[in-house]
Design a protein around this nucleic acid. Structure first.
Lengths: 204, 204
DNA sequence: GTCAATATCATACTTACGGGTGATATACAG
DNA sequence: CTGTATATCACCCGTAAGTATGATATTGAC
């Protein structure tokens, strides 16, 4: 029961129903099935889905792209295009809306399942804040940071003062200063903000 | 002539050739066609491709996943899986390697084209360093930063000292201090490192 | 058992930063 | 023309941060 809520935007009711049925058979939950732009906007607002499947072509125009823009502007969930267009100009327009996938009709359940799973996982990873990982930083340096030094560096990164750190780690403020000195030595910097900039460059 | 260099890893030579032919017919360039793990590692090292197409199943084992791990560890280009597996456990394993797509066999040229284009574009966007944009920051604040204030904030973010800024902007160090005071007011912080942390949170 | 690495703390000094207050000049909007 | 926003600068003060040097205790490797 993953209960992933999927919004289906597809102007062909039959296809939409088909997709919906497949989804519910596979532990997904259908947030809504809508057939046009305005209903899609409303559905997103009312109940934010975890992912959307967008037909690019709704009626006569390519409203799917507009829905995508709206998602990018105001929401933060991934979406996939479902369409039969594969020509260069449409794909080009579509890719600039940054879909997590583009499923070409006709597609089968396997296509749908894999695309949804990967889209959800990648989205969760991309939106995960870049973590402040010790190994990641140490790998790029000659003189490795010790565990304590790393903690202090992290506190600096978070904007804490020496006094705050001293309280947090139950050690003297002098000890904090000593740690900071060694950190500066190893990073070859001379101030907090320089250290932070350095860390940022190492994490890139 | 986009000259995107594609690495093809596929143990069926006929399919591999097929894919290669399609790619060259569509303005892609084939970096290499290899049929197993070791050749893939070598090919990546020798000539880093812009994107890779990986068959998960190479010979008897799922070496495609190992190649993906290698890409994630040592390289920085996107990859797509090409496979006929759609069962839950394989897809699950696969998604944790963070492919930019998963193309289920049999697939056609359209699937390939759209997936590659979207993978490349999304990859370029994800790896684009988050830029320090004034509007982006101002949009999230009540008291907007002026142009000068923004420049100073950026310098702080880059780790510069007041003296350095004073020299860079040809103004007195006192002026810099005044700007910093107003910045701190508007951001509701009391130190450089706090300001940087705040900016980071606003940019998220 | 000794050496190296780490973590802890201290003292003392210098400099950079943060905060308060006030002043002047310019530009632009109403 | 008058107020508001912006940019510029000055002076002063206190504190936080950075630098230097040295000391002690613990741990784990050789």
């Amino acid at each position: 029961m993953s209960e992933i809520r999927v919004l289906i935007v597809e102007d062909e009711p039959l296809i939409a129903e088909d997709i919906g049925e497949y989804l519910t058979n596979n532990d997904y939950s259908v947030s809504a099935i809508v057939h046009n732009l305005t209903d899609a906007i409303e559905a997103m607002q009312k109940e934010q889905p975890d992912i959307a499947l967008l037909d690019i072509n709704l009626g006569d125009n390519m409203d799917g792209l507009l829905i995508a823009e709206e998602i990018n502007k105001s929401y933060n969930f991934p979406f996939l295009y479902l369409t039969s267009y594969t020509n260069k100009s449409i794909v080009d327009q579509a890719k600039y809306t940054r879909p997590m996938g583009y499923i070409v009709k006709p597609f089968d359940e396997g296509d749908l399942y894999t695309s949804i799973e990967i889209a959800l996982y990648n989205h969760s990873q991309v939106n995960k804040p870049r973590q402040f990982n010790r190994d990641l930083i140490n790998d790029k340096m000659l003189n490795h940071l010790t565990e304590k030094e790393f903690e202090v560096l992290n506190d600096i990164y978070e904007g804490r003062t020496n006094k705050q750190m001293s309280g947090k780690h139950f050690v003297s403020i002098n000890t904090i200063k000593t740690h900071i000195q060694k950190i500066y030595d190893k990073l070859d910097v001379h101030s907090r903000s320089e250290a932070i900039a350095k860390v940022r460059s190492l994490l890139t």
